[in-house]
């Protein structure tokens, strides 16, 4: 009951905090418009024209299916990376030895350019769905893995002692001690992985597939159509912003409501 009572003010305060984000986005659009007017439509069409173009693409049924195809590939790769990365990262974090062994591998994987993975994936999987999915997976994996490992390693020893003294069974240690602590490390890692996944999927599609947003971008580039190119970019960024602020951020706030000043 108490929680329900808190839900409304928390939701309203979250929505209200959206004004700040909106102001910042509109400011960006204003600068974009300004630069666009200086260079002309061929080089940089303004935000209104790009949004008009995007609307046109949605109305004519071009944008929807391509976004769905790219979204599906992103989700497959991302979910795989989140599941495998979180699990393996946690397991690695439980032991000092595995953490030490894993650290240089993470640096190695994080440093490997996604384009290199893409070339390898094209050689291994050909020009199908598997190539972008694999590239997304392998690009996001080390980010999530590092977050999960770091979270597991940094759990306060005092709380571990509490779990031991009160003889918490393993599943309670996981759900009541480790996961709530881990969430504050995993969520930022998941959000970074989400951003990376869209970047990588568009790049992978541009080079390896005949459908999806990346492939559509390749076509618009060939036609020197700047406004369509920007419309695709805006569409991808819109999906990204919506996923982060309408899905992940509210979940994060809900899970971390115990933190001091989290609703500010």
């Amino acid at each position: 009951m108490n929680r329900l009572r808190n839900l409304l003010p928390n939701t309203l305060s979250y929505l209200w905090s959206g004004w700040g984000a909106l102001a910042s986005l509109l400011l960006f659009c204003a600068v974009w418009e300004l630069v666009g007017e200086y260079y002309g439509d061929l080089i940089l069409p303004g935000p209104l024209e790009v949004i008009g173009q995007l609307k046109l693409m949605f109305n004519s049924g071009i944008a929807g299916p391509e976004l769905i195809i790219s979204g599906r590939r992103t989700l497959y790769g991302l979910f795989l990376a989140l599941a495998v990365g979180s699990l393996l990262g946690m397991l690695a974090g439980f032991s000092m030895t595995t953490s030490m062994l894993a650290r240089p591998l993470i640096t190695l994987l994080l440093g490997m350019p996604p384009i290199a993975w893409l070339v390898l994936a094209m050689l291994w999987f050909g020009l199908g769905d598997a190539t972008p999915v694999f590239t997304v997976f392998i690009a996001c994996l080390p980010i999530v893995f590092a977050g999960a490992m770091q979270g597991t390693r940094t759990l306060d020893n005092h709380l571990k002692a509490v779990a031991q003294v009160y003889r918490l069974p393993w599943h309670m240690r996981l759900t009541d001690i480790y996961l709530p602590h881990l969430a504050s490390y995993l969520f930022p890692a998941w959000i970074t992985a989400l951003g990376t996944s869209w970047k990588v999927v568009v790049m992978a599609e541009l080079l390896s597939t005949s459908d999806g947003v990346g492939a559509a971008l390749a076509v618009s580039r060939a036609q020197l159509d700047t406004s369509t190119t920007l419309a695709w970019v805006v569409a991808v960024l819109g999906v990204l912003l919506a996923t982060e602020y309408l899905l992940l951020e509210p979940i994060k706030r809900h899970l971390e409501r115990w933190r001091v000043g989290v609703s500010q």
Binding site: L159, V162, V165, R167, P169, D176, P180, H181, W258
Partner: peptide, 24 residues
């Protein structure tokens, strides 16, 4: 055991902290 510091789980309400041992 009671430790030098309260060592409560920060993500649990007072009630859930008190009943931790019972839940186990």
């Amino acid at each position: 055991c009671m430790f030098q510091e309260p060592r409560l789980l920060p993500w649990k309400t007072a009630e859930d902290n008190i009943t931790l041992g019972l839940k186990a």
